Simulated scan of single mutants.
Amino acid sequence: MTVPRAWWARLPDPVIDAVVVAVAVVDVLLSLVDASPVEQAMAALACAALVVRRRFPLPVFLLTLPAIMQAIVVAPFAALYTLAARSRDRRLLVACVIMFALASEASWLLNDLTSDDRTWTLVNFFYALAAVAVPVLLGQLVQARRDLARRLVEIEEAREHERLLHSQAVLTRERAQLAREMHDVVSHQVSLIAIQAGALQVAATDPDFKEGACTIRSLSVDTLDELRHMVTLLRASGGRASELTPQPTLADLHRLVTTSGIDAELTGELPPGTSTTAQRAVYRTVQEALTNVRKHAPGATATVRLWHADDGAAFGVTVTNTPPTRPSLPLPGAQQGLIGLRERAELLGGTFESGATAEGGYEAILRIPAGTD
């Protein structure tokens, strides 16, 4: 469900920028009544820089610092808010707050002050720090709200996908149950009808009776063929892992990587003659690893590397992803997928390992000994 935004949030960015620049110009006109040409030029530059504050927030903030010493606050506050709303570097924001406060008291610090003036300058410095913290905290709040909204959309999409999978699983069970009932009950009864009709056809002496028994037997055989065809279709459409539904192999791996919804790259190759069972294990490992990247590392890139040892003793796949570029909310999970991959590897006599990398990403490695059937 999409929450409607406030009217001011629906305004185009150029309109908001124009309003901010207009307010900053009014602030300059009220503050610099008898200013020198140099001061007016610095104030005009600070106001003009606000037009590109969304693309270059840090340079724009630095350009507005000289205006602070002239008691101009709208342009520096707007630039600092934009920087706080777009930067995730907390140390940079703290440094900008300190620079803002120092610039606001620079005119006092450059003059010869008495002890009382120094005390009030220090007090005013801390007041300035408290005032500057307001746009920084507001910008960080807007950034956190934006990240939260993005994650809520991703969670809702994941829930919708889970609901779809659940409905498909229910439908699969119902189709499988229906197929079993048709095979075990209906087909059995129709087979008995065909057998009895055949026996009557052989034993009958009356031509009309014999023809009727032949018709019954023929209809029963045709019905039995139709039932068997329907059972085959039900089992195949139900997604049962049987001979009716082909399992994925290496031929399907490229499509899996390209349609995973993340920036992923497939490299390397497995040795020729790899068994179908081993190919299926590699496919399932890549599928689970890419799913985990999409769920737990938003914005990360992944590399899927197929490999085989130089001595031919083993082969496998390594899936590595970079750290996430966006913050993620903790999602509940029992890691059943990783447990299933480890059990699948053990059935083939291999190993499955996973864990964090030194760069902050994650890596999953499947190793299968050569000669596995």
Rank of each mutant, 00 (worst) to 15 (best):
246 P>C: 01
363 E>M: 08
279 Q>L: 03
294 R>A: 15
53 R>P: 11
335 Q>L: 12
241 A>R: 12
132 V>S: 05
305 R>K: 12
134 V>E: 01
44 A>G: 14
216 I>A: 14
151 R>C: 01
366 L>I: 05
39 E>N: 12
365 I>V: 15
115 S>P: 02
337 G>I: 12
140 Q>F: 02
192 L>I: 11
101 A>M: 12
237 S>N: 06
262 I>K: 06
109 L>R: 03
45 L>Q: 15
270 L>G: 08
69 M>Y: 08
100 F>H: 15
188 H>S: 11
58 L>H: 14
364 A>G: 07
142 V>G: 03
291 T>M: 09
147 D>L: 02
161 H>Y: 08
212 G>E: 07
175 R>S: 05
294 R>Q: 05
306 L>Y: 06
84 A>K: 13
234 L>P: 03
210 K>P: 03
56 F>K: 10
208 D>F: 07
157 E>A: 03
258 T>G: 04
356 A>H: 09
162 E>P: 00
321 N>F: 11
10 R>I: 04
46 A>P: 09
226 E>Q: 13
107 S>N: 10
64 T>K: 04
364 A>M: 15
179 A>Q: 00
72 I>E: 10
314 A>R: 15
237 S>L: 08
146 R>I: 02
146 R>T: 09
120 W>I: 08
89 D>N: 15
92 L>M: 15
258 T>Q: 07
146 R>H: 09
337 G>V: 12
98 I>T: 15
345 A>S: 08
292 N>Q: 05
30 L>P: 01
336 Q>A: 13
119 T>P: 01
76 P>E: 11
145 R>L: 06
149 A>C: 02
131 A>F: 09
207 P>K: 05
77 F>E: 11
179 A>Y: 00
61 F>T: 10
255 R>G: 11
110 L>G: 04
35 A>C: 09
108 W>I: 07
10 R>E: 14
276 T>R: 14
52 V>A: 13
232 T>Y: 06
173 R>S: 05
189 Q>R: 12
31 S>I: 04
369 P>N: 02
190 V>S: 07
144 A>V: 08
347 L>G: 09
242 S>N: 06
44 A>V: 10
314 A>K: 11
72 I>Y: 06
77 F>M: 14
354 S>R: 06
166 H>W: 05
203 A>P: 02
104 S>L: 13
266 L>K: 01
73 V>N: 15
4 P>M: 12
